[in-house]
């Protein structure tokens, strides 16, 4: 009758090395161009978690690191988009029935992004309807336009990062296993970012990377991470972080 750790053992035991197959990272809606001038972008509350990976491969959440990353990534996103000439504001979280509607669209975006990653970015796994070359046709539907807090904005930006730093034990196991010729991964650094056109609900850009760089707990690392997150962002090229 308690949800929390029942599945963790199974996860810990199964979290062996995932194959990193040849995979595309970025998709753009063909023919899409960002609104000229200053695009007004609303940043939805990013999903960020930072912690350690235990020796057995279990995620160990770390509240301090997550808080630092939330702070650093937020600032880096604002600064990168500012350099692109766009303005980014954080979504003001609504209450009541509005909050429910927003929560459903947040969940829908996660499902959509997962679908793009699984059924479009892996060329061998493409759905028959997604096989035509150069197409990128995914949408949340026009209901996005009526969501609270998005009035007057052009785009909604969704950002998700998942960082699990290999613990000392995990690194030791990795080293030892490598000596025996067994490959064990240490650490997980995943992230994706997507841009939704508020007027149509169309997903106009998605970037997903299962092996990202940049230590999100530090300012420079967060800047590097955000530069990677925004690779392929429509419009002008993204300035890479200084000194990286």
């Amino acid at each position: 009758m308690r949800v929390f750790f029942k599945s963790l053992v199974a996860v810990a035991l199964l979290a062996a090395a995932l194959p990193t197959a040849a995979q595309e990272k970025t998709g753009n809606k063909p023919g899409f161009t960002l609104t000229p001038g200053t695009a007004r972008i609303v940043l939805m509350r990013p999903s960020i978690r930072v912690g350690e990976q235990s020796t057995g491969g279990m995620f160990e959440p770390n509240a301090d690191w997550t808080l630092q990353a939330r702070d650093m990534l937020g600032r880096a996103i604002g600064s990168v988009q500012g350099q692109l000439g766009n303005s980014v504001v954080d979504l003001v979280e609504p209450v009541g029935a509005d909050a429910s509607a927003l929560a459903e669209y947040q969940a829908l975006f996660t499902t959509l992004a997962d679908s793009v990653i699984v059924y479009q970015f892996f060329p061998g796994n493409r759905l028959p309807t997604k096989k035509r070359k150069g197409q990128f046709s995914w949408t949340l539907g026009p209901g996005v336009a009526s969501l609270p807090g998005l009035k007057g904005a052009d785009y909604a930006l969704f950002v998700t990062t998942d960082d699990q730093f290999g613990s000392a034990g995990r690194k030791a196991v990795q080293l030892l296993a490598a000596l025996g010729g067994v490959g064990i991964t240490s650490g997980v650094h995943k992230g994706f970012a997507g841009l939704v056109d508020i007027r149509t609900g169309d997903l106009v850009w998605l970037n997903a990377d299962l092996q990202m760089g940049g230590d999100v707990r530090t300012e420079e690392g967060a800047q590097k991470r955000v530069a990677q997150l925004f690779e392929g962002f429509p419009g002008r090229p993204v300035p890479s972080a200084t000194g990286q």
Partner: peptide
């Protein structure tokens, strides 16, 4: 605080099994 104890226990089990499987 059972969730915490359960979390630590699950982690300990994963660590133990990984080390013994290796060594």
């Amino acid at each position: 605080r059972h969730s915490l104890e359960g979390f630590k226990r699950a982690r300990g089990l994963g660590d133990l099994l990984t080390w013994t499987a290796l060594l």
